[in-house]
Write a protein that binds this DNA or RNA. Sequence first.
DNA 1: TGTAATGTTTACCAACCGGTCAAATTATCA
DNA 2: TGATAATTTGACCGGTTGGTAAACATTACA
Lengths: 217, 217
Amino acid sequence: MVLPRAARTQRRTRIQGEKEERILEAALEVFSANGFRGSTVDQIAEVAGMSKPNLLYYFRTKEAMHRALIDRVLDTWLDPLREFNAEGNPVAEIRSYIRRKLEMARDYPRESRLFANEVLQGAPHIEDELKGPLKALVDEKAEVIRAWAKAGKIAKCDPYHLIFAIWSTTQHYADFDVQVRAVLGQGNAGEGRFEDAARFLERLFVDGLQVSEQPTV
Amino acid sequence: MVLPRAARTQRRTRIQGEKEERILEAALEVFSANGFRGSTVDQIAEVAGMSKPNLLYYFRTKEAMHRALIDRVLDTWLDPLREFNAEGNPVAEIRSYIRRKLEMARDYPRESRLFANEVLQGAPHIEDELKGPLKALVDEKAEVIRAWAKAGKIAKCDPYHLIFAIWSTTQHYADFDVQVRAVLGQGNAGEGRFEDAARFLERLFVDGLQVSEQPTV
DNA sequence: TGTAATGTTTACCAACCGGTCAAATTATCA
DNA sequence: TGATAATTTGACCGGTTGGTAAACATTACA
């Protein structure tokens, strides 16, 4: 017998757990930076600190690695949206959703880029996840937003496009990081851009750009 | 002598013009769908309807093709921002910038994805363009926006993050098209999503989500 | 401790990649 | 028309890719 892991034995050995962990961490690093096609198994093996055949002992193909990675990351990636609470104060909920998404862009940019790469190239490996669990979750939360609007608690707006707008504005800071840095220049190279972004986005989504009632200079 | 085109003769033959056109069109198709590393010269040659060596007669390397493509596309891509007019009505200018960017996402999604792919992977080929012409243009327009805010014509806000927000929300509909379609589902599969998006974004950027003065149900 | 299962390595392969070359073909124009 | 330059092609090359085979080493456990 030559098959690895849980394929036949239900039990996982200690080594299996450690190695698979290291491999997926390395795969995240490489896939998120180069996309699926642009990544090589050798690269991942080197980052993981093991030989290519050894890596392929745990994940039989490059695709299997990618799938395992997607499955593991997708759940945590959607957590902020799940926390969206129908009972809370609408504006406060939206505000804190934006904040959480922005924190994820700051703290987990690789996960963001992993999905961005995938979706950008037509989502060949995650089409089912998009049309299934993702759509279901968005549908659910869109209904919540629609109810808020109907009750007059927030302005009437298309809830789906609101969610898209929050996704795109926040993930922009992870996915297009080099562009953001290039445009902001050396001066704003520190992490302060995330605080500026948070201030701007909270204000944008809540008040818009129209001059509001509070006195302006 | 074996060198093609303008490398030695200043004059371009009729065939040169036609073939280079076909090649760049094919390159846009392939690069935008697969990224630089994920694309092969054979793919581009097939889409262009010619043999690989023939293609390489006009562009000596894959990189040369990519660079020529970037150079050609970048200019037109930045046109909407250039049209941004300091003399116009601030809110109207921002509104029409959003509309133009959204139209480009609808009509030129390949160009959008070409840059998205490039930036997402660290902009290895266009770093100079980002830090040079792009930054200069953004700096200029940011100053315009800052002046508007100072004059009390729009709400005070960080002009750079405003531009990022407009870029990300509009380009989202090109770059993440499959995701948008998957979430909206079959019903909204038509092009109507761009009109919905336009309505939503104009409203978002101008009014925000707060319930405004006009009577709500 | 012995042995069977698990893990690791070296050597390797076929397919594919970007790119070259020389020969053949076609367009240009004096 | 003929000769010269421009274009096109098929055969090929060295390097890289994802993946395999089998020998070897280590671990777990009765």
